[in-house]
Amino acid sequence: MSLDFINAGLVLSSITTLLFIVPILDSIERKVKAAIHSRIGPPILQTWYDIRKLFAKKLSVIPNPFHVVFFLFLYMMLSIMSITYFITAVLVPMWNSIMVLIILITILQTTFIVLPFVTSNPFAIIGATREVLLVLVNEIVFFIAMALLIFFSGETYLSSLPYIHPTPAYLILAAILFIVGYVSCGRQPFDIAEAEPEIASGILVELTGPLLGVFVYANLVRRALFKLIPVYVLIAPFTGSNMYALITSLIILPILWVIYAGLAALFGRSRVDIAPVSLLKLYSILFSITIILYLVFK
């Protein structure tokens, strides 16, 4: 009973902190990039200021508003829900939680790529078609990686991961998840959907004001989720307790965010016909290694 209380408190407090600091992490990302650019960069609360400003703007009518607004809010709800579910499932043993997470993320990603399609804006659709290819590759890889994870560890509970023994094959899987996470966040060289100078501006081109604010925020939450999952998978077996695993993951999150930001600043943007192919190559190599390792160490 008391453990449940602690867990509930922990879940609530982690979620609220996360939801609050995610925009700050984004500002830090901008700061890091600015440092690499030799610039001062924006203040630490800049992303919050941006969101506030967007919400202060007038709500403008867009074509096909019902669909857009529906999917937009679905997207935001799903991002927040997925991250909440993830944190809860880490602390509280829940049956088949890894599978549920896979499904949640699949729906989340689908919403994300459907969103531009429901706007009738050609530029958004160009961005979306580019994104579809990338997300397809990435989603399938995510799916396979999680499936292998279940297979290798024999666990379907997220909360059991701290108690398994980390094998080399498992660690490679975690590495794959890191790459998936990086790609899903749409950073260089994988920012092909939001490549504003390349005519396609993704969904961003269509939304303004509060709607854009919702999208920006939801996107940041999604980015946080895609960083948390691999971190948790990687460090869980070394911590030995779910609570430690969760707290450590939350601490590592900003560090990882900074590293990703730095990496993104060093790359250029890839192209839609290059990126998925080179990604596939990389993934196949990693998958082969992990399977070989698994077979060798079995």
Binding site: K33, I36, H37, S38, R39, Q188, P189, D191, A195, P197, E198, A265, L266, F267, G268, R269
Partner: peptide
């Protein structure tokens, strides 16, 4: 050109 290629670091340093 660097900016168009998504390489903003190159953009900023060229202008610096």
């Amino acid at each position: 050109a660097a900016h168009l290629l998504g390489y903003d670091t190159g953009f900023m340093h060229a202008w610096r």
